[in-house]
């Protein structure tokens, strides 16, 4: 077990290092002198020179990378040009919104996608199954921002039940009730992802139900419900669990759009605004953090998979 964890962690670290090189190179791949691009047309040569020095752009690339990576390891991701604040502060400001949004979305995805997928699989071939599967395919094909705009139109603009934009922190006035600001965004974000998990759950239930050991379980004479719960569901969920890391990454990615639709002060919107502001250190920092998060999540999924499925070999 320990060997497995060490090996997987090593692989994830290697990927992280390679990804960090790409992220570092990003600023140098943009056409033009990075410092001048960031400061815009109005900048004086002195300002450009000052920024060059501050960012260490005069050093050879390899040295710059080690400076940058070394700082990143110590938790220093550079300074935002636009805010003139450490990038970590900018990220931290958006973290609460993004983490809560992704978590609430994940709850919808699991609460809706898994049970409905199980129901569809248990009623395989029925009208209910065909309807649910078709609906899931349709929902998986709808852009999240379109769902978001419709939710705003109906539940915020017409019915006035829920706020349409912004999110005050749960630590500010209003407390936990402020979570209502995240209901519509999380539903929009959950739509295609719950649909995908539904389809995955259904497909893996059907795959598992064809396995020989399910026939063995039936032969024992236990009830159909017990066959489903003890033998099909548990094995089918292994596949679903392994997709959670993937789904969470998709959430982070799609949250960029959702946060823009609902004007949420999250990391995703920060990325979009930083692109428009040419605030490259922030973009670099956010992407690095998200890639780290993604790799950690996948690692955790891999390890938990190892706990759930004794077959996975100890490499």
């Amino acid at each position: 077990m320990l060997g497995f964890i060490v090996k997987r962690t090593g692989a994830a670290l290697a990927t992280l290092v390679a990804a960090s090189v790409l992220i570092f190179m990003f600023i140098h791949l943009i056409p033009g002198e990075p410092a001048a691009v960031m400061l815009g047309d109005a900048a004086t040569p002195e300002q450009v020179a000052a920024l060059r020095t501050r960012l260490g752009l005069d050093e050879p690339l390899i040295i710059q990378y080690f400076y940058w990576a070394g700082n990143a390891l110590q938790g220093d991701l550079g300074r935002s040009i636009f805010f003139d604040e450490p990038v970590t502060t900018v990220i931290a400001d958006g973290a609460e919104t993004s983490i809560l949004l992704a978590s609430i979305t994940m709850i919808w995805v699991v609460l809706i996608g898994v049970p409905v997928g199980v129901i569809a699989a248990m009623r395989r071939g029925s009208w209910l199954d065909q309807g649910l599967s078709g609906l899931a395919m349709l929902l998986a094909s709808i852009p999240t921002f379109w769902v978001g705009l419709y939710l705003i139109l109906v539940f915020a603009a017409q019915l006035g039940w829920l706020p349409s934009s912004g999110y005050p922190s749960i630590f500010d006035e209003g407390g936990l009730a402020n979570l209502r600001y995240l209901i519509l965004p999380s539903l929009a974000l959950a739509t295609p992802n719950a649909a995908l998990i539904l389809r995955l759950t259904r497909a893996s239930m059907l795959d598992v139900s064809k396995e020989d050991y399910v026939r063995t379980a039936r032969a024992k004479g236990i009830s159909p419900r017990q066959v489903t719960v003890r033998h099909i569901l548990r094995n089918a969920l292994l596949v679903v669990v392994s997709a959670f890391g993937f789904t969470f990454a998709a959430l982070i990615s799609e949250a960029v759009v959702t946060e823009t639709v609902f004007a949420l002060p999250g990391i995703g919107r920060t990325v979009v605004q930083s692109i428009l502001r040419r605030d490259y250190p922030v973009i670099q920092g956010v992407i690095l953090v998200i890639v780290c998060l993604y790799l950690v999540l996948n690692l955790l999924v891999d390890i938990s998979y190892r706990f759930l499925d004794p077959r996975v070999e100890l490499e």
Binding site: T15, L16, A18, A19, L22, A249, A250, I252, S253, E254, V256, V257, V271, V272, I275, I287, I290, V291, Y294, L295
Partner: peptide, 12 residues
């Protein structure tokens, strides 16, 4: 390594 980047972020 490319797959470690969430798809929309990579495109952005």
């Amino acid at each position: 390594v490319l797959m470690a980047f969430p798809s929309l972020l990579l495109a952005l």
